[in-house]
Simulated scan of single mutants.
Amino acid sequence: MNYTNENISVVMLGASGAVGTQVVKRFLKSKQPKNLILLGRRSIDTIQADFVQQHEINIFDPNSYAPFVKNTSVAICTLGVGEPSKMSKEEFLKIDKQAVLDFAQICKKNGVRHFELLSSVGISATSSNFFLRSKGELVAELEKLQFARLSIFQPSMILTPTNRYGISQAIVLKVWPKLNLFLHGNWLKYRGIAVEKLGVAIAENIFSNGSGLEILQYEDFNRISERG
Rank of each mutant, 00 (worst) to 15 (best):
G122R: 02
R113K: 15
E196F: 04
S128P: 13
A203P: 00
A66W: 06
W176E: 10
N222R: 11
R42Y: 10
I202C: 01
A148N: 15
W176R: 02
G212V: 05
L36T: 03
N209S: 13
P177G: 09
D220M: 02
N163G: 02
P84R: 08
E83R: 15
A49R: 00
E196R: 02
K178A: 15
E196I: 10
V10D: 06
P33M: 10
A15D: 12
N110Y: 01
K70S: 10
F60A: 04
S9I: 03
I224V: 13
I193M: 04
I171W: 14
L150S: 12
N180Q: 07
W176C: 04
V200E: 10
I224T: 09
G199H: 07
S127F: 13
N71D: 15
V175C: 12
G212P: 02
S208N: 12
N58H: 05
D61V: 07
I158F: 00
V19D: 02
L150M: 08
V11W: 01
T126C: 10
A49N: 00
A125Y: 09
L198K: 02
N209D: 12
R41K: 09
S156R: 00
Q146D: 05
L142D: 08
G14K: 11
K31E: 08
M1E: 03
S9W: 07
H184F: 13
Y218Q: 06
V195G: 01
E214Y: 11
N186R: 05
P84M: 11
T126S: 14
G199P: 00
I152W: 09
L138K: 04
L183C: 12
C77N: 11
G192S: 06
S208G: 08
Q54C: 05
